[in-house]
């Protein structure tokens, strides 16, 4: 019960001291707000880069053209051979008749040309998806070497370059996000340290009248928590409204249809929760670290 009362009082005192030291609290809240906005922006960038990379990668496939003089059994053998590769995610068969039908539907003129040719001149194919883009080239080379395969087509070299660039970009953005979070932690804890410095006499008095170290720390931790939460409100609003508006203005994609943006819903809420947690944790730990220093006296 004693502990519960101390906890309840700490919560009350935390709120009270934010109100009574409003100037200092405001400085900490602003510092949190600004750094969290930066964190929010970089998280959104990072997730979108990752998303774009994934969506491009998932569309990359190898088309395997089979020689026209193969028997059913030969085709089956080639299929099992390709499937046995560990890098192969999935394989679908598309026969020459299916290709013909698709082409005929897409273009009236082509239909007449194909009809004029009589025998279907197209080739039976496999469409192979790999589970890792880096395996694309090797897999394609391997399939090409199988007897009975006429030719192999896969994403041109340009696509590969794009993907490498995106991969590097993704890593860079992740590093930036982590660095920003660390900077936030540092900035917030320093601001809180400054505000607590001005209250070191308060801590001294608490110790002199017989408050245990835990009872002294708790209100400051609560205060840091509240500052972190309040400081994350504006960044959260910016994230939710800003991203939804951005997404609808750009019609869901950047520059080309290939680079789609992450759908705003649920995504903005996840980002908000992350911001809230970062704000609260950094506020609490910053306060704790700052108070500790003065408890050693």
């Amino acid at each position: 019960m004693k502990l519960l009362r101390i906890i309840r009082r700490s919560i009350r005192d935390g709120f009270k001291s934010i109100v009574r030291n409003f100037g200092l609290s405001f400085a900490s809240i602003m510092c949190t707000t600004i750094t969290l906005i930066l964190v929010a922006l970089s998280i959104i960038c990072a997730v979108n880069v990752e998303h774009a990379t994934k969506s491009i990668e998932s569309e990359l496939s190898i088309i395997v053209y089979l020689k026209s003089d193969l028997t059913e059994e030969d085709i089956n053998n080639i299929e099992t051979d390709i499937r046995s590769r560990s890098a192969v995610e999935s394989l679908t068969t598309k026969t020459k008749d299916e290709w013909k039908l698709e082409l005929e539907e897409s273009d009236e003129e082509l239909k007449t040309v194909l009809d004029y040719l009589g025998d279907n001149p197209l080739m039976n194919t496999f469409v192979v998806y790999v589970n890792d883009v880096t395996e694309l080239k090797d897999t394609a080379e391997y399939i090409k070497s199988i007897t009975g395969v006429e030719t192999v087509k896969y994403g041109e070299s340009m696509v590969e370059t794009v993907i490498t660039i995106f991969d590097i970009l993704e890593k860079v953005v992740v590093v930036i996000v982590i660095a920003l979070i660390l900077v936030t932690a540092f900035l917030i804890s320093n601001t809180i340290k400054l505000t607590i410095f001005s209250r070191r006499s308060e801590i001294e008095i608490m110790r002199l009248v017989g408050a245990s170290n835990g009872a002294i720390k708790l209100p400051f931790v609560v205060e840091g928590f509240i500052i972190g939460i309040i400081g994350s409100i504006i960044p959260i609003c910016i994230t939710i409204y800003g991203y939804v508006i951005l997404h609808s203005r750009l019609h869901g994609h950047l520059f080309t249809n290939v680079l789609t943006l992450v759908k705003p819903f649920n995504f903005v809420f996840y980002v908000s929760i992350v911001l809230l947690i970062i704000g609260a944790l950094v506020g609490m730990l910053g306060s704790l670290k700052a108070v500790r220093k003065y408890l050693k006296i």
Partner: peptide, 17 residues
């Protein structure tokens, strides 16, 4: 920042009364 009452009560609060 605390009133007279709060200043005196403070010594008892941190004991957990």
């Amino acid at each position: 920042k605390l009133t007279v009452y709060e200043n005196v009560a403070f010594a008892l609060e941190c004991v957990g009364l």
